[in-house]
């Protein structure tokens, strides 16, 4: 019954011509299924949650707000559609420039896609559900018809045509792999929505809408990736490392044993990799002695591993199969610009 009325609303919206605006009002009727977010052990289909009124179009339901990150994580050049769901009557709490503290019942949704407009193809949607006993990360894989995304507990390996890299063997992570990146001290946590990596405009709108309690200090401190040529190179590089590496490379992360700490706030040169010898890099070292040799990216393990697509060498280990050329470019310029003697 509900589905039928939605279909009618959708049709009405389309016939009205200004689809988005009219749909936005029509959408008010669709709400997220809080039982799926909070209780159903592992919902089998993305549609069970009701995060979208139009899932294929990625048009969100009420209280599901799209967002972007100033500096995003690289995933084989896929475009990402991110959404945050905060249940009605609840609020995320600002925690300085760090991760917004989302209340129980919230969800973060991220869809990975290639192509634009009518050619856009949704590959997978990953959800992070904040339940009473903590966050749960689950991956959903879209079908070829683009009508539904089903739970892909064990992940998947797909041949995907991409505009930038041609056909690649794209990896949808399994449930455990979700956790490998999304964990601090073995507890699942979100990574992306830190205030410092969200725009002030977005945050202001969230505060105004009542989804966030207050404007966090330090909002938007990370440079906007597309504007990196105008930004401070050190900030750009450190933002890139924070977003792409620091979920593992920090004292409570998966790569804690490496002793490499690539968080934005880390200011000890050795911890960031400067003249730091590898611990367990194996052939990842590429015959080089230090993570970063100031002034010489060609002798820096960091650049060697970022520039490899060879499993066992390539960094990050998960979530990508191709090299992020723009990321390598930034880190290369950053290291080459380091004065050799200052550290």
């Amino acid at each position: 019954m509900k589905r039928l009325s939605l279909a009618i609303l959708g049709a009405a919206a389309l016939s009205a011509g200004s689809a988005i605006a009219v749909q936005a009002t029509a959408i008010e009727v669709t709400v997220v299924n809080d039982t799926a977010v909070l209780e159903t052990r592992m919902p089998r289909a993305l549609s069970d949650y009701g995060f979208f009124t139009d899932a294929a179009g990625q048009i969100p339901s009420a209280n599901v707000t799209p967002y972007r990150l100033n500096t995003p994580l690289y995933t084989d050049s896929a475009s990402k559609l991110r959404f945050a769901y905060v249940p009605k009557g609840k609020q995320a709490v600002a925690d300085g420039e760090g991760l917004l503290k989302f209340p129980v019942g919230s969800a973060l949704i991220k869809t990975f896609a290639y192509g634009e407009g009518e050619d856009r193809r949704l590959i997978e949607t990953r959800v992070l559900l904040h339940r009473a006993d903590g966050w749960l990360a689950l991956p959903y894989k879209w079908n070829d018809e683009q009508t539904e995304a089903k739970l892909a507990l064990v992940g998947a390996r797909l041949d995907v045509d991409t505009p930038e890299h041609g056909t690649i063997s794209y990896r949808v992570p399994n449930k455990n792999q979700c956790k490998q990146c999304h964990s601090i001290d073995d507890t699942v946590v979100p990574i992306g929505p830190k205030a410092r990596n969200l725009s002030s405009d977005w945050m202001a709108a969230m505060v105004k809408a009542g989804h966030v309690d207050a404007m966090p200090q330090g909002t938007g401190a990370l440079p906007v990736w597309e504007h990196r040529q105008e930004a401070d190179l050190n900030d750009t590089a450190r933002a890139y490392l924070d977003v792409n590496c620091a979920h593992c490379h920090q004292p409570q992360g998966k790569a804690s044993n490496s002793g490499l700490d690539l968080r934005w706030e880390q200011d000890d040169p050795t911890s960031v990799g400067i003249r730091k010898r590898p611990v367990a890099a194996g052939r990842g070292s590429g015959g080089l002695n230090f993570s970063i040799v100031p002034g010489d990216s060609s002798r820096s393990i960091m650049v060697h591993r970022m520039g490899s697509d060879n499993p066992g060498v390539a960094m990050p280990e998960l979530g990508k199969t191709t090299v992020d050329k723009d990321g390598v470019d930034v880190i290369t310029r950053w290291i080459d610009a380091m004065p050799e003697k200052t550290f």
Partner: peptide, 12 residues
């Protein structure tokens, strides 16, 4: 024929 991940089996 491994294509991804940093090890064969990871136990956490």
């Amino acid at each position: 024929n491994q294509m991804g991940a940093g090890e064969g089996l990871l136990v956490t």
